[in-house]
Design a protein around this nucleic acid. Structure first.
Length: 457
DNA sequence: CTAGGGTTAG
């Protein structure tokens, strides 16, 4: 048997795209006794993790890696970086509780914090952050930036901002991390203020900076601001027309600011469209009640050789919903199998909403009962909304009680008042005032806060 | 020549 040299193996690994290919190179590496070399093992784990169905193989390679202590630390870091966030935390905590055979370094900490961010695990990540501070490892800009990203992902903007203020050296990624944090937490004004200070400090905005800027403008719904942002993108980001994120952001921004024609113009001029570009345009059309046009775009998209995904289907179903296109929506739902997209809770929710808004409350109810998965609160809420609008008091009461049950069983999500208010509206529509006041009483006793109303545009 | 920090829908 001919064995490939190390360099050839590593190069081939880099371009392997299926599990079968990775397995072949894996065999070569065994024959070449490359599996005692940290870099080779690391690359193998990386590749297995990247291909479909390779997670178990990556785990096996990791478990059987046998090398010097520094090599183990390196391979451990690679594994934490490449596996799913839940497993990253597990690998990390196992090693920490075991008498610290491997000492985490700044690489480990960035990966673990990133995992906590993805899991929305504020408690765990805060503990990790404390361990970082205790570890004596001089915290690098990368670790601190990831910590900012972590706190922001967990909606703890106070900690994120505090950390940012304390940093003496910041990279453009640091600025972007905090800005993205403001953005995803709906703090559009803060996003713009931070961008201003970034520019004042002489930092150049990057493609990721302008994605936050565009999203902030979407939230504000201010067309004048949107045009200014668009001009800023033109001035400051070279090759912006090749950046899919920016194109998608522009389409979304113009749609949300009420200017569908500008959104279409941007869409037409994008050279590299991906599934999200198409989805964003469909969402924009949906937002403006142009359901037929959104459906028409699906055909163009398929002719263009792009395959719709779960997000695309959500956008289209919601377009049908807003435009009252019941038949089209149901037809599209049936076509999902052919399109290769498995219906998720959101798609079921769209159909219930579609039927409910069209006044077909009985049909919506029987659809919910036929669902192959357990309906979540969003699905029930759509049905309850239909009951309120179309005066189905009995069903509304039944659904409202199911929702309150879900509400009480939930321990992780904060208590909200929406479901109480909705059920209360059912009672009010039937002039059952005693039930209304009993519900208000239950809300007070349950510690459910009434929230102030808000509007975006 | 032992790797590193983030993002697009509702």
């Amino acid at each position: 048997m001919i064995t490939l040299p190390r360099a050839r193996c590593l190069a081939l690994l880099g371009i392997s795209s299926s599990k079968k290919q990775v397995k072949q190179i894996h065999a070569q590496m065994i024959a070449n006794s490359l599996l005692r070399q940290p870099l080779a093992v690391g690359k193998l784990i990386e590749r297995y993790s990247a291909v479909l169905g390779g997670a178990d193989d990556a785990r096996l390679v990791f478990r059987h890696a046998d090398m010097e202590p520094e090599g183990s630390a390196f391979v451990w870091n690679v594994m934490i970086r490449c596996c799913l966030p839940q497993e990253s935390l597990l690998l990390y905590s196992q090693e920490i509780t075991r008498k610290r055979v491997i000492i985490p370094d700044s690489f480990t900490y960035t990966y673990v914090l990133r995992a906590c961010a993805r899991l929305n695990a504020l408690r765990e990540g805060t503990q990790v952050h404390a361990q970082i501070l205790k570890s004596g490892v001089a915290s690098s800009v990368a670790v601190q930036t990831t910590a900012i990203y972590f706190y922001a992902s967990c909606k703890d903007m106070d900690s994120a901002h505090h950390l940012f203020d304390k940093m003496t050296t910041r990279s453009h990624v640091t600025w972007n991390a905090l800005m993205t944090g403001y953005c995803i937490n709906g703090l559009a004004k803060e996003t713009l203020i931070l961008l201003k200070s970034m520019l004042e400090e002489g930092m150049k905005p990057t493609d990721r900076t302008v994605v936050s800027l565009l999203s902030a403008c979407s939230q504000l719904g201010d067309l004048a601001m949107a045009s200014a942002a668009h001009a800023c993108v033109y001035k400051s980001v070279p090759f912006h027309e090749e950046c899919v994120f920016i194109g998608t952001g522009l389409i979304d921004m113009y749609s949300k600011c009420g200017c569908l024609s500008s959104a279409s113009r941007v869409f037409e001029r994008i050279s590299k469209r991906n599934v999200l570009t198409w989805s964003a345009m469909m969402a924009g059309l949906a937002f403006h009640g142009k359901g037929k046009a959104a459906m028409g775009l699906l055909e163009v998209m398929e002719k263009d050789g792009a395959a719709p995904n779960a997000i695309t289907l959500t956008c289209l179903l919601s377009a049908c919903c807003h435009a009252g296109l019941v038949d089209e929506g149901l037809h599209l739902f049936d076509a999902m199998d052919r399109l290769g997209v498995e219906p998720s809770m959101q798609h079921y929710g769209c159909i219930v909403d579609l039927l409910g808004r069209a006044g077909m409350v009985e049909e919506a109810h029987s659809f919910v009962k036929r669902m192959p998965v357990k309906p979540d609160a969003v699905v029930w809420r759509a049905l309850l909304g239909a009951c309120v609008t179309h005066g189905h008091v009995e069903l509304g009461e039944e659904v409202g009680k199911i929702l309150l049950q879900i509400e009480r069983a939930a321990t992780t999500t904060p208590r909200t008042c929406e479901d109480y208010v909705a059920l209360s509206n059912v009672y009010a529509s039937a002039e059952r005032w005693e039930d209304v006041s009993a519900l208000r009483e239950a809300m007070r006793n349950g510690g459910v806060r009434n929230r102030a109303g808000r509007s975006s545009v």
